[in-house]
Nucleic acid binder design. Structure first.
Lengths: 253, 253
DNA sequence: CGGTGTCTTGAATACCATCAAGTCTTGTGG
DNA sequence: CCACAAGACTTGATGGTATTCAAGACACCG
């Protein structure tokens, strides 16, 4: 795991960047590769590396403030993050959990101020892209554009699912679906074992609560019930799905 | 009001199409004009009119089935519609209420099957655009592309707001926000009176319930309370906001 | 060692869903 | 034109799901 001294500015080891980007499980299927190549900051050509666009940040720190204006958009390279909307009374709603390769928000690419913040769940390495660069590239590079559209569609589909989850499903259903969705996304990235059904799971209960629109206390009760009935095993930042069929039955898939 | 005999196929009066499109309050600010001009079906050049892409449909009918594949996407010309996700147990969640000028879903433009249906709330006139035409145009026409991005951003922002509404707000808050959102969107189109605060309001209670994730019964109770306290007046498919400040206070804006 | 963050459990309560019954309107066909 | 059915809205009673409040256990860290 990366640990960052304190500041968000680039305090890192330059030669490691190309190495870790090449190993990034999301590089091939996401915007990252296409955009970075287009802009000229991809490891293909380390001489044009743009190191100041890469940042390390500690868990529970804010990557991107929603109320500010930005001309850049962050892309998660390593670790977990979340885009969060914070209400005036202090309560919070997680709009999306961001995994490696995810852009903070595809719409935020163009729309300056989105109102939602991005927070690190684990220690996170991310890079930022300038809106102007991206906008120009999308119209000139068909591959970029196709990946961008794919990312938009995925994001919209997941948002629609989340809306129906919050509007029409019970607590157990929401939590089961969150787990299954994360597992599926981790599998796409080769970050979860297909056989053992074990996955990295750094979410705290309050993250699950904010993602599912529930209270922290109730999340604890539902998860305890899942554990008692032998559906999942949770331990030390990891989660194992012991009975996938049971979990899918709960999730109404 | 348009009344359509029965079928969804084009059973209409061709010369009226250009007339009504010119009068469309959404034409100027939306994709419609730019795209239609690009594809060659805009009233600017009636000779290339594509009448078979225009449809009339009755209230409570389905415009677009979510489980089917489509190579076209509907754009609302007149009337109100809704994009709805239907669960296996029959319960429903409205993802978005569609007003004149709205594309059913900007992501659906490219992603074939989205899983959500589009239903007419009132009698609706809509036109369909072929995905292929649009996709090509967006890359060639900067004005088209800009409007498309704007529509994407608006749609994403409203989806994010809906997620936090459903996850973190009470019934009264959700309903107040729904009313204010609709009023704001109608104003943009010149379809609501700024002075009298009166607006067309064809939503049934079950529409409000499905849009806010509440039960039909509870919607009735909250609206009755709003009426009793003199905040809104509801009558014959119209709604008047009598005390805007009170409504905004409830909505936590 | 206190401070902070995390998780758990129980009790009381609030919010909203469900059930049920009734009124009223709208549309349809005989 | 009337009868009937279906849709729309309201209201009260009851119950369940999830929140809030509260207190305690545990781990981690400076």
């Amino acid at each position: 795991m990366n640990t960052c001294p304190s500041s968000a500015a680039g305090d890192f080891d330059p030669p490691q960047i190309p190495l870790s980007c090449s190993a990034c499980p999301a590089c091939a299927r996401n915007l990252c590769q296409a955009v970075a190549r287009a802009i000229g900051s991809f490891p293909d050509d380390p001489s044009i590396e743009v190191p100041q666009s890469v940042h390390l940040i500690n868990a529970r720190r804010v990557i991107h403030w929603g109320q500010d204006f930005h001309d850049v958009v962050p892309l998660i390279c390593e670790g977990w993050a979340a885009s969060v909307y914070i209400l005036s009374d202090g309560s919070r709603q997680i709009l999306s959990i961001l995994l490696p390769g995810d852009l903070a928000s595809t719409a935020l690419l163009f729309g300056a101020q989105a109102g939602c913040s991005v927070e690190a769940i684990t220690d996170v390495r991310y890079r930022t892209f300038a809106q102007a660069d991206l906008k120009a590239r999308l119209l000139n590079d068909a591959d970029c554009f196709a990946r961008f559209l794919r990312a938009c569609i995925d994001e919209t589909a997941r948002a629609d699912q989340l809306i129906t989850d919050l509007g029409r499903r019970t607590a157990a259903e929401r939590i089961a679906r969150l787990i299954l969705n994360l597992q599926s996304r981790l599998m796409q990235r080769g970050m979860a074992q297909p056989e053992t059904m074990e996955m990295e799971f750094p979410l705290r209960h309050h993250h699950i609560a904010d993602a599912t629109g529930l209270s922290l206390v109730h999340v604890s009760k539902v998860l305890s019930e899942f554990r008692r009935s032998g559906i999942v095993k949770i331990g030390d930042r990891s989660l194992t799905i012991l009975e996938p069929e049971a979990l899918q039955r709960i999730a109404l898939m």
